[in-house]
Design a protein around this nucleic acid. Structure first.
Lengths: 171, 171
DNA sequence: TATGGATTGTTGTAAATGTCAATGATTTAT
DNA sequence: ATAAATCATTGACATTTACAACAATCCATA
């Protein structure tokens, strides 16, 4: 059960030769009917943004995965690992590894749940909060870059539609 | 360089117990600021749709990957493997494996490129066209299900915005 | 209140996927 | 002609994913 249409493999030559003929091959297939498939479009735009995101986060020794856990640890919502797994659609064992790493770096702490001692809540330390603040600026720049083909109003519309599709409310 | 925010792990119990309390934990985190991150929203909606897609395609012994190759082989555009790799953001070696499997099943054929005999174009056989026709219906149903929170006009808007973000044109 | 069943975090493992370098055949450039 | 680049392919290795098993804890109910 593969998770994604495709990956983020990028032609190495493209980074230095990003102009014309190289993209022609890519553009040619834009005419294919698969570009009417929303799942395909979501995957492709996500893959493109993902590269920029990970580049921006590498400076802080974070990846999208660990960054998203760090955000949620900073949210004040005191998520448990199970909640993180559900929300991020990750296997609980992957959350263990992510939290292990962040905790080892002193960015988050585990605490037993107040009502349920089996559960462990993940909250950010001051160091985690500081890193999150810096990383989120870089991530915001990466998002802007990934969506630079859209006007600000269009980005807002896109966000609203995605939120509505996911949770049924546009606010 | 990880490709995705997260995966498509799904709570097994959710398939039989899809009503209330199970989702409450998930809903709680919707308040977190990460839900304003377009990359996150793209990843999450894609992951959700991906599960439905793969379920729908399993009937035809296809996954999203092989299905997308099958679509492009059916497009009449005669893509080369290199073009497939670029368009799907996959390493050329993964294309080899995907085409190998489809070719073994008699769904596509490789042919040397007309101008460039190094390149191999991938085109669908009649059997491939037939399977594609059936699979695309199932995939369309899965997409409808994944986006059932949106009106038809909203889906159209979403599609247009994604296309514009990717290729700079909305048509 | 005791007992069985479910849930949480955790560990470990096998399969799938990603990454990358090397190769022969062919094309392109000089 | 010769050198450099490109294409498909193979293979080696790292990372990610999916899943089963387990102890600790909670929950329902008898």
């Amino acid at each position: 059960m593969s998770m994604i249409y495709f990956g983020n493999y990028l032609e190495r030559a493209m980074t230095i030769e990003t102009r014309g003929e190289k993209l022609a091959g890519t553009e040619k297939l834009v005419a294919a009917p698969i570009t009417n498939d929303v799942g395909f479009l979501l995957a492709k735009l996500h893959a493109a943004g993902s590269v920029l995101n990970n580049q921006a986060l590498a400076e802080f020794d974070l990846k999208e995965r660990s960054y998203s856990v760090l955000i949620l640890a900073n949210s004040g919502l005191e998520p448990t690992q199970r909640e993180l797994a559900d929300f991020l659609s990750l296997d609980p064992s992957q959350i263990v590894a992510l939290v292990d790493e962040l905790e080892k770096r002193g960015l988050v702490v585990r605490a037993p749940g107040k009502q349920d001692r089996r559960a462990k809540t993940v909250t950010a330390t001051p160091a985690g909060a500081k890193l999150h603040a810096r990383a989120s600026e870089a991530a915001a720049r990466a998002e802007t870059e990934a969506l630079d083909g859209l006007e600000a109003a269009e980005v807002a519309t896109l966000k609203a539609l995605l939120r509505k599709a996911l949770w049924g409310h546009t606010e």
